[in-house]
Amino acid sequence: MERQSNRLAVLLTPALILAIVIVSAYGYFAYSSLFAKGPMGSGFAGTITFENYTRVLASASNRSVLFTTLYASVVMSVLTIAIAVPMAMVIVRAKRQWVANLIMLAIAVTFLSGGVTRAYSWLILLGNKGLFNLALTELGMIERPLKLLYNWLGVGIAIVHYLLPFAVFTLVGAVRNLNPSVEEAARSLGASRSVTFWRVTMPMLLPGLMVTLTLIFSIALASFLFPMLLGGGKVRMIANQIYDRMFVDYDIPYAAATSVVFLVSAFVAIWLMTLLSKQVKRLNER
């Protein structure tokens, strides 16, 4: 017994050292939120104060960025799931294996090609002279180019695109666990395809959808690069706010307080989602 625990300690030690570094980093950063901004070059100084928190919560712009981040993340996650469900169904159920493989390959290559690559691509695609505006003008559908960049539309498209591979990967497992004979029974009893989908498939899939929603919601909340590059300063999410406190205002304690408020609200939101998905699962099992 003694020897076993020694062995475990040896196996875990390197990982524990890294864990201690990250806990100290998070802890020290959170601790700094309780002080005033120090003189140039130093992090923070003075005595313990909650002033940074009152500053974060009292500012209307902070509150609106926080609310928008949470709200937009929910909307983008739901949209992503709507796009991901048909893909996951085709991947799992396609009769021809190459169709499934092709979609999987598309997802994998997109996923591994990275965030900066995709942000840059959307920047060109959605611009005033980009593919979309050119195509729509050519087709005579619009006269002046649509504003697709530097607003929520462009940032939203890029973030949904970023979330899509995560959503499909997670949903594939959920769709694979569905029992297709239940749907076949509904169909053979005369239910149409859409009735079967909404009344039979969706309720069975709902727990899986909730798990996926929670996962991609937490990824969406952390968006940083897309609003920074495609938002042109007009679309701000909370991560951008934290970055600016740090590198524009050089105010570490204020950045820290903003982060703490952000994390607390993110955890509450994710906790509520988990609660909801547990409820859904329970209802489903009944």
Binding site: A19, I22, V23, A25, Y26, Y28, F29, S32, A239, S259
Partner: peptide, 23 residues
């Protein structure tokens, strides 16, 4: 221990980055 090791998965990268920088 597991939670702490996995925490950078849940905590946004910006927060992890700033925290490490200030440490």
């Amino acid at each position: 221990i597991q939670q702490v090791i996995l925490s950078p998965l849940i905590i946004p990268g910006v927060v992890t980055g700033v925290s490490l920088l200030s440490l």
